[in-house]
Nucleic acid binder design. Structure first.
Lengths: 117, 117
DNA sequence: ACTATATATTCCCCGTGAGGAATACAATAC
DNA sequence: GTATTGTATTCCTCACGGGGAATATATAGT
């Protein structure tokens, strides 16, 4: 079974999310392609891919001296399901309205000088 | 508009995820209740809640000297949608099968030196 | 006024983890 | 074999961010 904690930790990093998005567009990419597309350097790309693979977010396929990376649906699905478990929160529509009012519980009284709104 | 990066960064921390889950069960909680339920100390709970509020993941309502926190569907929905955009990955079922095979592309070559670790 | 409770904020410390450079390992071409 | 390309790994440094303690700021009660 895939650990939700590991998955969400892995996604909690901007460059790793960029790699996931790049792999989503390209469907399959070598490390060099990801280096070129991301602007990151090769070692960091490899390291990030290792973390993503550890979370079942990407899968690798050896191809000659290349490694072809692609998205792995298993980790992505686990993360998606974690957020889906909160669906009731935004489907009870009143919460959203309330939130607009109550996000800032004290909207700066500013010592209430007499100027008009 | 809510920034997906900020949301996913905020969720990328285990204790903040715990707080979200606690708020999901309780629907609304004071800081003290979250302190008791999480085992964290009050300042860190307040700090994490501030990050979550900055990502529109929680909303606050002032109630006497308490602050009642609840989940905010806006941030949660943004995160859910980000992962939903990858749905095609796990709905193409072959990826899952391939992953089982190709996650470890080179299962321990015979460089094994005879000495103990 | 003072006291107590609830929460936020400030300061400091320290570990984790991301980035960089260099190197090691792997696979093809010659 | 050597050279070259592609990728992984090691080592180092350093900043970011989380935790702890103390303090500040509210709000209620007396």
């Amino acid at each position: 079974m895939i650990d939700t904690e590991i998955v969400l930790d892995a996604v909690g990093e901007p460059n790793r999310r960029r790699l996931l998005e790049l792999l989503h567009q390209q469907h399959e990419s070598t490390v060099s392609e990801l280096v070129a597309a991301s602007g990151l350097r090769q070692p960091q790309v490899s390291k990030h891919l290792k973390v993503l693979a550890g979370a079942a977010l990407v899968a690798v396929r050896a191809d000659g001296r290349h490694r072809r990376y692609r998205l792995d649906g298993r980790g992505l699905r686990v993360a998606h399901e974690w957020f889906a478990s909160f669906e009731d929160v935004w489907q009870a529509r009143f919460d959203t309205l309330d939130a607009l009012v109550s996000t800032d519980p004290d909207p700066v009284p500013e010592h209430s000088r007499g100027d008009a709104p």
